[in-house]
């Protein structure tokens, strides 16, 4: 049986597993709530993805973990940061100079790659959750909506509400104020999306080609359309935006491009 390469992205909200074959084909995957036992969730995700692939754990040649819980994955041979894995995963699908926007559960990232896939810089949001998936969850809760309902509602908006605050708590207050003033729910939801986009676009400049990844994009594709409108050009999105980090980790497992041996160029 040909070997399988596993990538596990233990995020603050969801744990994603991707299995690749030697030719980098996606054999199986899983997305689960990370919960409180990262180690167990990673293992369950692995089993689920192995089932999809029709393979067993014995077929795994190498596993690499990433994300906030990357150190908790016992079966991983190595860890890489989520920044490295998103870069690797995106460049595989879009092998050119790109700027990656990843909207995660707890943090946002902007990563810049050159034409060879090398990182030329990256930014993460500050400790604040504004503009992240956690922000959307909080707003959905305030609006008494399921998170899955947001995308369809935002698309119905004809008169978007503008939220002015950076802060999640202050934004929640603004949402309540808009409800009190009789604003339509769909207009408030679109305003919430717009707020997420603004928080991201102020983090860094963008190069010509932009790729968006992450669970928020996977579940709310309208955010991509709104961002396109905001920046005035098309945005690239892969087939599995939520799996990008896990696929990147699996690519690291397959290609094992560890930095060992790399030295200072100046020293």
């Amino acid at each position: 049986m040909n070997p399988v390469y596993a990538g596990v992205d233990v995020g603050s909200s969801r744990t994603k597993v991707a299995l690749l074959d030697e030719k980098k084909g996606l054999l199986g995957y899983a997305v689960r709530k990370s919960g409180v036992d990262f180690s167990a969730t990673a293992l369950e995700g692995l089993k689920e993805s192995l089932e999809m692939a029709g393979r067993t754990q014995a077929d795994i040649a190498r596993a690499v973990s990433t994300g906030y819980g990357r150190a908790n994955v016992a079966f991983a041979a190595d860890t890489k940061t989520e920044i490295g894995c998103h870069a690797r995963g995106c460049f595989y699908y879009f092998p050119e100079a790109i700027t990656i926007i990843d909207i995660g559960g707890q943090d946002n990232k902007i990563i810049k790659l050159d034409g060879q896939g090398r990182r030329t810089g990256f930014k993460m949001n500050r400790k604040c959750a504004a503009g992240t998936g956690a922000f959307l969850e909080e707003m959905a809760s305030r609006l008494d909506l399921a998170i899955e309902e947001l995308d369809a509602l935002a698309r119905q908006s004809a008169d978007m509400v503008r939220l002015g605050s950076f802060c999640t708590v202050f934004s929640a207050t603004e949402v309540l104020e808009n409800i009190r003033n009789g604003k339509k729910i769909e207009d408030i939801v679109k305003g919430v999306f717009f707020s997420v986009i603004n928080r991201i676009l102020e983090m860094d400049s963008l190069s010509e080609k932009v790729v968006m990844t992450g669970g928020v994009v996977a579940n709310n594709p309208y955010i991509v359309a709104m961002t396109e409108e905001q920046i005035g050009r098309k945005i690239l999105v892969g087939r599995h935006p939520q799996l990008t980090g896990a696929i990147g980790a699996a690519l690291y497992a397959l290609e094992d491009p560890r930095g060992a041996g790399k030295e200072s160029r100046r020293g």
Partner: peptide, 22 residues
């Protein structure tokens, strides 16, 4: 109280990965 150790760790690790790619 103004520090996120996990954010710092991820940033520094990613920065070293970036240096490795130079």
């Amino acid at each position: 109280r103004l520090i996120s150790d996990e954010q710092t760790r991820t940033n520094v690790e990613a920065f070293v990965e970036q240096l490795e790619e130079q």
